[in-house]
Nucleic acid binder design. Structure first.
Length: 727
DNA sequence: AGCACGCCGACT
DNA sequence: GTCGGCGTGCTC
């Protein structure tokens, strides 16, 4: 009797392919095995996801598996089910989903022989060496970074923005020594168990009691309330049952400090999966978790796709963070998949945040998630005082009003640090001719170019194009070009003029990549000397600045009134996260928010009542207009060389779908707010329904139509289920 | 996505 | 005469 296997092949087709399992193969065909198969003129690596006894495919069309690449299945049954579920739920080609379930090394037929990554640490006899020449800034900075983080791989060093030459100079000078493995669990520092307050204790007990069954918790804890300690205690109890824990953290959340805290508490038990690892390290850790050798996996988005031996607890830290949603290809939400896996593995899932997403708060309201609140700040620190500054009719200098400047001066006089937040990098977002009104626009996008004064450049923040900064208007040749609006670079300059004796530290993508690393700047801040920090949302995540007692927010209005209905939610979260950077027990913080609309009800709620009432107000609005998370949505996007062809493609889909049912809706094609980006035109269809099944039913039909349509040249299209952006 | 097949323009 | 442009179609 012939044997068949259905294989998920890495190609963008929404189906599996049947192959004959030849008798010449020694092993028995098993679901979860990787196989090498002929596919058209190519040979590809696929994963068996079914072993049917017959097949509808014509005999002459059927091909045979070339060989089995695994002795025993490389993906366990639960992951195969997850892949199939995800392909259906996200309406994404199965083969591409399964591809992402595998570590990169296992996606190829022949495992690439890769030598283990080399790590570098400070040489033991560094004190005997001559100090680095004072002009070798890069080497000094890299050495400091390595000293601070212990051990770094070549790849991590490169990611921090240091060239190979800089590293090689340090190696040749004898300042660094080789190490085989990343810094092992703490050897000297004993693990310190912090004592719990009543709320923390209650949270730990609730989670621990739930171990062994599926349950969902929203751990709502203000910054500094000790969420991590709750996680660590719950993990301890999970380990006590002989089960494993998955901990997800946002992309920028995996600081050396976080990792250290876990490794100190659970020596020899923690695996990590993040961008700093080489491919071979990734498979090693992947296998250690699958076999059960390691009990804790700490990782970013893709870690949610790791097979576990016995998964007993899932924690998603900063669950509101947008980096949990993959923004290309298979657009999955790691947070949502975490909940799905909790249900599959019958274990509790803890979503933690100081600023929970409306999705999770909605689930709390529906009784699906149990709310655990941490209101007290650990160590008795007080919440910062928040003030709204009305800047209507006020003269601003690079966006700074008088009250904020005065408050900054006072803070510095008291020997403290100030943080000024502006979520816009560069010098100025627009360059305009004072004489004829000409605006510097991007050639490829519907956007203005941002002035980068230090580099004498105009840059497009959407496509990366650069031009040299003109000195005269290209249209009327007038010399008077004016900068419209501030960016962090301009803010830095202006603050330097106001406070010439105080160091200004700017933290944004431009300063952290150019100067090599963010860590050096952070270290500088942590010395505690009076200074002013200026920066974008990079400041809002991952780092705490205990000596900052003043947080100034320059311009939050833009986000509150953005085209996307999620604008206020995101701005509110960002605002609270930035505000949370400030102060500690003995140094209470102040937050000043400049606004042109200080009477805005959402802003009022946020400032006077806090995040939760603010979020509840937004949630009520979503309910009123039947927007997510009250309803479910999906977006079909298309981009092409002309707006017409992108819209025409989407129109064909919308026209082929049934109409008249009020239980679901489809609108479009809508051109994106910035229709042209990087030379391509973008449009979208938006599907919405309060019934998930109805949404999926019609989305499925839409995909089938889209697949069959002949596409005009160069058209690309994609499906996004539970999108976090409309465009 | 790849890759092959196929049908029309400027070249040694 | 052919090399090569990318339109179209298929992948068990």
């Amino acid at each position: 009797m012939p044997k068949f296997v259905t294989v998920a092949v890495p190609c963008p087709l929404r189906r599996g392919f049947d192959y004959l399992w030849p008798d010449t193969l020694q092993q028995e065909a098993k679901v979860g095995m990787r196989v090498s198969v002929p596919f058209g003129p190519r040979r590809l690596v696929g994963v068996i996801f079914a072993t049917p006894t017959n097949s509808d495919i014509a005999k002459q069309k059927m091909k045979s598996v070339i060989k089995a690449l695994d002795e025993s299945p490389c993906l366990p049954p639960d992951l195969i089910q997850l892949g199939l579920w995800a392909a259906a739920y996200y309406h994404h080609p199965v083969g591409e989903c399964f591809q992402q379930l595998l570590p990169i090394t296992l996606r190829k037929a022949e495992p690439a022989k890769e030598k283990p990554a080399q790590y570098w640490q400070c040489s033991d006899d560094i004190t005997n060496l001559p100090p680095l020449p004072s002009r070798a800034h890069q080497q000094q900075s890299l050495l400091a970074v390595i000293e601070q983080s212990g051990r770094l791989s070549r790849r991590q060093i490169k990611d921090l923005g240091y060239s190979n030459t800089v590293l090689n100079n340090l190696i040749n000078g004898g300042y660094l020594s080789k190490a085989e493995a990343p810094l092992a669990a703490a050897t000297s520092t004993p693990s310190t168990k912090l004592s719990l307050n009543t709320e923390q204790d209650h949270a730990v007990k609730a989670i621990s009691k739930a171990l062994g069954g599926f349950d969902r918790f929203l751990l709502d804890g203000v910054t500094g309330s000790g969420k991590t300690e709750v996680y660590l205690r719950a993990i301890e109890d999970c380990l006590g049952r002989g089960e494993q824990t998955l901990v997800l953290i946002p992309e920028i959340g995996l600081t050396p400090q976080t990792l250290q805290r876990f490794e100190q508490r659970f020596p020899t038990n923690v695996s990590t999966l993040h961008s700093g690892l080489s491919d071979s390290e990734r498979v090693q850790n992947w296998k250690k978790i699958q076999s059960g050798e390691h009990k804790i996996l700490l990782g970013t988005r893709s870690a949610v796709l790791t097979p576990f031996h016995k998964l007993g607890l899932i924690i998603v830290d900063e669950e509101h963070d947008a980096s949990y949603k993959q923004q290309d290809g298979w657009r999955y939400s790691a947070r949502d998949i975490a909940v799905k896996r909790g249900s599959d593995h019958c274990c509790p899932v803890v979503l933690g945040s100081a600023t929970p997403s409306l999705d999770s708060l909605h689930n709390v309201a529906l009784g699906r998630y149990q709310l655990l609140e941490l209101r007290e700040r650990a160590g008795g620190a007080n919440a910062p005082k928040v003030h709204l500054l009305d800047i209507r009719n006020e003269t601003l200098d690079a966006g700074l009003g008088k009250s904020l400047l005065d408050a900054t001066a006072q803070t510095l006089n008291e020997g403290n640090q100030a943080l000024i937040f502006l979520n816009r990098r560069g010098f100025s977002p627009q360059l305009q001719c004072h004489s004829c009104g000409w605006l510097a626009n991007c050639q490829a996008c519907d956007a203005t170019l941002t002035v980068h004064f230090g580099r004498r450049e105009l840059r497009c923040h959407h496509c990366g194009a650069t031009e040299t900064l003109p000195t005269i208007c290209p249209q009327c040749h007038n010399h008077e070009l004016i900068f419209q609006g501030p960016g962090t670079e301009r803010l830095e300059l202006s603050l330097k003029q106001h406070f010439p004796d105080v160091p200004i530290i700017r933290i944004d993508r431009d300063t952290t990549s150019a100067k090599g690393s963010m860590q050096l700047l952070i270290d500088d801040i942590h010395t505690g000397k009076p200074c002013i920090l200026v920066g974008t949302q990079m400041l809002a995540k991952g780092h705490h600045f205990p000596d900052v007692t003043l947080v100034g927010i320059i311009d939050i209005d833009g986000g509150l009134f953005s085209a996307d209905f999620r604008g206020p939610e995101r701005s509110g979260q960002l605002l609270i996260q930035v505000a949370g950077r400030a102060g500690r027990a003995n140094k209470p913080g102040k937050v000043y928010i400049q606004s042109h609309c200080p009477d805005h009800p959402a802003l009022q709620a946020l400032v006077n009542q806090g995040y939760q009432p603010f979020a509840q107000q937004l949630l009520a609005e979503r309910k009123l207009f039947s927007l997510p998370p009250v309803s479910f949505s999906a977006v079909i996007r298309a981009d092409a060389v002309s707006l017409e062809s992108a819209e025409a493609f989407l129109s064909q889909i919308i026209n082929a779908l049934p109409t008249g049912d009020t239980a679901w809706s489809i609108v479009g094609p809508l051109p994106a707010p910035m229709a042209r980006k990087a030379g391509r035109f973008r449009a979208a269809l938006i599907l919405q329904s309060e019934r998930r099944s109805l949404l999926h039913q019609h989305l499925h039909a839409a995909c089938e139509i889209g697949d069959q349509l002949r596409k005009p040249q160069n058209l690309r299209w994609s499906v996004d289920v539970d999108p976090i952006d409309l465009f």
